[in-house]
């Protein structure tokens, strides 16, 4: 009898605490959105000056883009190979392996390319960006810059945001192209699909404006905007302690991933849903 009462009390407490956390969640979210938007405006305001210092931006493109190349390139090849293999397995029963090229290319160009490279970017470059900015905040480097009459938004935050925004579509292009090559390798070299039909069916199905521009370019630009915004915000907003920084980097990866996936659904519906 006593056990029964304890059990009910515990369950009630669990639900109550979930409810409490849920209620706290939304006001907090609105507050963060507000702070994040203010930060975004200040960054955008600092962008023109940042463009006048291309050296800073180039250095950041190196840190965010070039250093992400290994993971992007290797992942691209593997994803393409998996698509080739899975596609073959599913098409071979219908004798439709000639369509494999089209399948791999469409999957990559429309979805996998921009989405997966954005997720990888969040994990590698986004978290590094958050950690770097958080560390600068914790060691008072940003404050000392302000004391030296240098606006940290112009000097530190805007160049990084801009560089990330440039790097994202570049990485997505590389990921997608390598993915298609990976799929081609598996399909033609390993599985015996005819090379001619692989490429010609692909070319017949993939449209430049509707698929490549919409998919790879526009999607990756949108994802890049969001990923870099979140990364910079979490770094700037974090508690200036080592625990605060590590929580902020986790939040960057989680929030960027969720936002990218949600946005992908919206963009896909807008771009490809009409058919």
């Amino acid at each position: 009898m006593r056990f029964h009462r304890v059990l009910v009390a515990t369950l009630v407490e669990i639900f109550a605490s979930i409810g409490r956390r849920g209620l706290r969640f939304f006001p907090l979210l609105i507050l963060r959105l507000g702070r994040g938007s203010l930060l975004l405006f200040r960054i955008l305001a600092g962008l023109p000056r940042a463009c006048l210092r291309p050296g800073l931006v180039v250095k950041q493109i190196h840190g965010l883009g070039v250093l992400s190349l290994p993971i992007i390139a290797v992942s691209g090849v593997f994803v393409g190979m998996v698509l080739g293999l899975q596609g073959y397995i599913n098409l071979v029963d219908y004798g439709a392996t000639a369509q494999l090229g089209a399948l791999v290319a469409l999957a990559l160009v429309r979805e996998m390319g921009p989405v997966i490279s954005a997720l990888l970017y969040a994990g590698r470059a986004g978290s590094a960006l958050t950690a770097e900015i958080g560390l600068m905040k914790a060691t008072e480097q940003l404050a000392s810059m302000e004391m030296m009459a240098v606006d940290p938004f112009q000097r530190v935050l805007a160049p990084r945001f801009l560089a990330g925004l440039i790097a994202m579509p570049l990485l997505a292009c590389i990921f997608t192209a390598l993915g298609i090559l990976g799929g081609w390798y598996i399909a033609v070299w390993q599985l015996g699909v005819d090379s001619g039909s692989f490429w010609s069916q692909m070319q017949a199905s993939v449209q430049f404006v509707d698929d490549v521009v919409d998919g790879v370019l526009i999607k990756s630009l949108v994802f890049g905007f969001v990923a870099n915004w979140i990364a910079v915000f979490e770094g700037y907003d974090c508690l200036p302690t080592s625990e605060g920084i590590s929580r902020a980097t986790t939040r960057t990866v989680v929030n960027t991933s969720l936002t990218v996936l949600a946005l992908d659904f919206v963009l896909t519906a807008l771009m490809f849903g009409g058919n």
Partner: peptide
Amino acid sequence: MLFQSGALFT
């Protein structure tokens, strides 16, 4: 201003 930790740019 001299900050407690120096705050040099790393």
